[in-house]
Amino acid sequence: MKIEKKDVEYIADLSRLELTGEEKELYSAQLGDILSWMDELNKADTSKVEPTAHILGLENVLRSDLPEPFPDREAILKLAPQRELDFIKVPKVIE
């Protein structure tokens, strides 16, 4: 499968990545190779196979609805690059 430069630009934009022209060329080729291999997998007959969402074979890993407040929220707030009062401060978001 061929990956065009514009496909790489679109994915980079969704992922908030800034790529140089050279990188775009490189990734187009590499992603193309990966997808070609997917084409190989596509040759397998899966018409009678249920799509898999998970490989562990587990179901219903649930927890009961009991509150357990996290004791060190300061540790989390400290990870934010910027803070004001108890809020995390980020560049202005419109709306």
Partner: peptide, 18 residues
């Protein structure tokens, strides 16, 4: 996660966890 559902008047980031 087991963080309590905070009251809407609770202090900012008072019910958060990793």
């Amino acid at each position: 996660c087991p963080c309590p559902q905070a009251d809407y008047k609770a202090g900012a980031n008072s019910a958060i966890c990793p």
